[in-house]
Computed example of a mutant assay.
Amino acid sequence: MKTLSLFIFFLVPFTSFANDDKLKEAEELFSSGNIEGAIQLLTDHLTDSPDDINAYLLRADYYSLSGKLSLAAEDLIAAEKISDDHPRIYSIRGNLEMLVDNYNEAIKNYKRSLEIDSTNAVVLNSIAIAYFKSGKSSDCMKYFEKSIELDSTNPDTFANFGLVLFYSNDTLGAIKNLTKAVELNPASVKNIIQLGALYDNIGEHNKAITIYNKAIDYDPENGEAYCRRGIAKFNSGEFKGALYDFETGLKLNPELEDQVKSYIEDAEKYIEEKE
Rank of each mutant, 00 (worst) to 15 (best):
M1S: 14
K2S: 14
I8D: 13
V12K: 09
T15C: 04
S16M: 10
F17G: 05
A18N: 12
D21M: 07
D21A: 13
K22F: 04
K24G: 11
K24Q: 10
A26Y: 05
E27F: 01
L29F: 04
S32I: 06
E36R: 15
E36G: 09
A38P: 00
L41T: 04
L42W: 05
T43W: 02
D44N: 14
L46H: 04
T47N: 15
T47S: 14
D48N: 15
D51M: 09
D52Q: 12
R59A: 05
A60Q: 03
A60V: 01
L65D: 15
L65N: 14
G67P: 01
K68E: 15
K68R: 14
L69H: 08
L71H: 11
A72Y: 04
A73N: 15
A73V: 08
I77C: 10
I77Q: 15
K81R: 14
I82A: 07
S91C: 07
S91W: 01
I92G: 00
R93F: 04
G94C: 07
L96T: 07
L99Q: 13
N102C: 05
Y103Q: 06
A106G: 02
A106M: 04
A106E: 08
I107L: 08
S113N: 11
S113E: 13
I116D: 12
S118V: 06
S118C: 08
A121E: 12
V122Q: 08
V122D: 10
V122I: 10
N125L: 00
A128C: 06
A128Y: 04
A130N: 04
K133A: 11
S134Y: 02
D139Y: 10
C140I: 00
E145S: 11
S147Y: 00
S147D: 06
S147E: 10
I148A: 06
I148M: 09
L150E: 10
T153E: 15
T157N: 00
T157R: 01
F158G: 03
F161H: 13
F161N: 14
G162N: 03
G162T: 01
Y167A: 13
Y167F: 11
T171D: 14
N177S: 13
N177D: 15
T179N: 05
A181I: 06
N185R: 15
P186A: 10
A187E: 12
S188I: 02
K190F: 00
N191I: 06
N191H: 12
I192M: 07
Q194R: 13
Q194M: 07
G196N: 00
D200Y: 10
I202H: 02
I202G: 05
K207F: 04
A208I: 05
A208R: 02
A208Q: 00
I209V: 12
Y212A: 06
A215P: 01
D217E: 15
Y218R: 14
D219Y: 05
N222L: 06
N222I: 05
N222Y: 03
A225E: 12
Y226R: 03
R229A: 12
R229H: 09
K233T: 05
G237A: 10
E238S: 11
F239K: 01
K240F: 06
K240P: 03
G241A: 12
G241T: 03
G241E: 06
Y244G: 08
F246L: 12
G249W: 00
G249I: 03
K251D: 14
N253L: 10
Q259V: 12
V260M: 10
V260I: 12
K261F: 11
K261G: 03
I264D: 00
I264W: 00
E265L: 07
A267D: 00
E268M: 09
E268H: 11
I271E: 01
E272R: 09
